[in-house]
Design a protein around this nucleic acid. Sequence first.
DNA 1: ACACGTATAATTGTATACAATCATGGCAAC
DNA 2: GTTGCCATGATTGTATACAATTATACGTGT
Lengths: 222, 222
Amino acid sequence: MSNKQHDQGNRHSLTGFVFNKLREEILDGKYKENDELKEVAIAKELDISRTPVREAIRQLELEGLVYSIPNKATYVIGISDKDIKDIYEIRALLERLCVKMAIENITDEELDKLESIIDLSEFYTSKGSMENVLELDNQYHELIYNAAGSKMLKHTLSDFHHYVQRIRHKTLADKDRAESATMEHKAIVRAIKDRNVDEAMDLAQAHIINAVKNIEKHGFWN
Amino acid sequence: MSNKQHDQGNRHSLTGFVFNKLREEILDGKYKENDELKEVAIAKELDISRTPVREAIRQLELEGLVYSIPNKATYVIGISDKDIKDIYEIRALLERLCVKMAIENITDEELDKLESIIDLSEFYTSKGSMENVLELDNQYHELIYNAAGSKMLKHTLSDFHHYVQRIRHKTLADKDRAESATMEHKAIVRAIKDRNVDEAMDLAQAHIINAVKNIEKHGFWN
DNA sequence: ACACGTATAATTGTATACAATCATGGCAAC
DNA sequence: GTTGCCATGATTGTATACAATTATACGTGT
């Protein structure tokens, strides 16, 4: 769970609601590349005014998920297979950095929380409850991103992590992958607890690389 | 120069204008941490309506430069010295990756353009025309970011590069630093041209590390 | 004097109205 | 038939009006 204060996911405002909805639909592939987003159509669909829709679209534009042609329309860009691949390559580097920083800054409470997340992950993995595993996977990464104590790094990694949420949903449905992912998390936490920087960094990097391998095994989107 | 199509810096729309203006002022320190942004005040100041101001603020919020309290106001977050330091640490890794990708994808035309940028940089450095040196520094990095051929990497690096624009302005005013920075650029281009991946990566990383050292020498903001 | 409640003001959230711009289609001139 | 122009419609850009929420200040009761 990200902190409330700076959370874009403000579902109490219509702008935040529309932003999240459109973003999810773009990342989920419900909107395909070059699809048109017409403000009035979306507003009518949701039975709201154009104002929150416009604000949400401006945000999507900043994120690079859509682009607008003045007085014409907004078009979906979305993320391609190559984008996904690039994201994992970037993450492989940044997750290394992140665990290094986390080792320097993590608190005992956070470590306890991490371990309980791992325990729950093992439980739900064995039960095959993959929705819960995915949610715990999110919590695990968010916690480490926070523990690193770098606003910039957290912002970057959270964005990327969110971008690949859909594909993780698919890959974690593979029970073998879910099990090995949980084991990898466990090993990383172990190394963090031992303050073993080099091992933690290598494990974190390997964790991302393994994720990519698994994605490629499944042929990306299908 | 970023491509027009996806450019946020659309100075033909009021939203883009306000966004750029506020962002620059935040990054320049004209707005300090916890300063209030009142929609009506800004709108009145610029003699426009609240609508474009709101849209710009929503974008700044997404970027993490401000945060809003509903029905109250928006507050400046800005970037701290530690953020700057973190940015350079992240960039040290990503610029490595970037030159590696660039070597695989750069065209001859881009290489020619790079060399002409270097030549001009040397010229203006010797003349002490630091505004031009800064502009060429921007062009140099933008070109390499584009040459890498990764939308995601370019987006990330461009954002970070922009964030530290102000401090680069200060450090490049140091003629010694401007000269060594240009020489470092030259060496990197040489390595790219020779397709010497390892050397290019090491040089790109060293370039960032040297920038940090210089910043620290100058005591960050002052 | 202090605590509480209520009215008022200030601010943002949302909807609507109006302006500007661009694409489209039809019609006329050649 | 083709080309060019004008009118019309569709869409976004901007401004304003209205609603909801929150902070503030004042007054009243104790």
